Amino acid sequence: MIKILLCDDHAVVRMGLKMLLNNHPELEVIGEASEGNEAIEKSLELAPDVVVMDLSMPHGKDGLSATIELKKKKPEISILILTMHDDEEYLFKAIQAGASGCLLKSSPHDELISAIRSVASGEAYLHPSATKRLMEEYLNTVKSGDTDHFELLSEREKEVLTLIAKGFSNKEIAEQLYISVKTVETHKSNVMEKLKMKTRPELVQFALKKGLLGYGI
């Protein structure tokens, strides 16, 4: 029996996936989560074999951040990323984050079942659009020890990082981006987690090196 935790911010999607997966005798959905923090908590509580994780969740912790944290706490859990983005960049980010597989939301149902079986058995599973070049690029990056954690950031997180480095407060950033202060704080937390940094000065130094302020060091 493969125990599965579903993480998606849409309840209807979770319901559909649960009905589909529970129709297979060797699969069992043991829990659900609507965002990354809840997925981490329930994974620690329920110990699933596979977490089916939505990549983009606007509220709470996103799929990439949750994958990074969960793999630190429970490296034995396999994570299958679901995404609507048929783009090598997103696939590469998922692999960097520690996911065992990545699948398009538009994929046929039988492909989802195959992907879950594969990652549950310790194998990797990538959608066919993830080419041989993607894997070669990733392996070369790992071997060289030159993983660029900046590429794990979403576009919104890069915007928040840039404004933090420019000295804006959370409230000012919220006003500029038309989001809540709480959302800014969540993005800031995700940025620091992905970049493995703990202080604002570290973020400023990083932003300078990346040329996010218009000039580098």
Rank of each mutant, 00 (worst) to 15 (best):
G101E: 07
D146I: 11
V29G: 03
H149G: 02
S106K: 09
H24D: 09
A33N: 03
P75G: 12
K196W: 03
L104C: 11
D110K: 08
M84F: 08
I79V: 10
R117Y: 05
M15H: 06
L6A: 06
S114D: 15
L152V: 08
K143D: 05
I217Y: 09
D87L: 09
E151S: 13
L44S: 06
A130L: 14
K158P: 02
D146S: 14
A66Y: 00
E155L: 12
V181K: 15
K71D: 04
P25F: 08
M57N: 00
K18H: 08
E175T: 13
D110M: 09
F150D: 07
D87H: 08
V142C: 05
V51M: 02
L103D: 08
L64Q: 00
L153D: 01
G216M: 12
R200N: 07
A207I: 01
Q176H: 09
E137S: 13
E89Q: 10
E89C: 08
L27R: 01
E172R: 10
Y125S: 13
H59W: 11
F92R: 13
L213S: 03
A174R: 06
T67C: 08
A94D: 03
L80N: 04
D49C: 04
G101H: 03
S65E: 03
K210Y: 05
A124H: 14
G36R: 00
P108N: 06
N22F: 08
S107C: 12
V191I: 15
T186W: 00
I40P: 00
V204S: 11
L161P: 02
K61F: 06
E155F: 10
M197D: 10
A33D: 09
I116E: 04
L64I: 15
Y178S: 15
T83I: 07
L55Y: 04
V181N: 13
E123F: 06
A39Q: 00
A124N: 12
H10Y: 10
Y178N: 15
P25N: 10
E172Y: 03
A130W: 03
L161V: 07
E28M: 05
S180N: 14
L134T: 13
V142D: 05
H187Y: 15
I68F: 09
K188Q: 12
K198E: 14
S100G: 05
K143Y: 07
M192V: 02
K196Q: 12
D110Y: 10
I217H: 14
V191K: 00
L152F: 07
I30H: 04
K198A: 11
S56I: 08
I164N: 04
L82I: 09
V50R: 05
N170F: 06
G216S: 13
Y178I: 14
S43P: 03
D87R: 11
K71M: 11
E45H: 04
S107P: 08
R200K: 14
K182N: 13
K18N: 10
D54E: 11
V52P: 00
F206R: 06
G101R: 07
Y90G: 06
A174P: 05
D9Y: 05
K74L: 13
I113G: 02
E185P: 02
I179R: 03
V29L: 04
L177H: 04
S56V: 12
N23H: 11
S189R: 13
Y90R: 07
E45W: 05
L6H: 03
G122R: 10
E155G: 08
L21F: 02
M1D: 09
A124P: 04
D86H: 10
K143W: 05
K158N: 02
S34I: 07
R200I: 15
V160Q: 03
P25Q: 06
E26V: 01
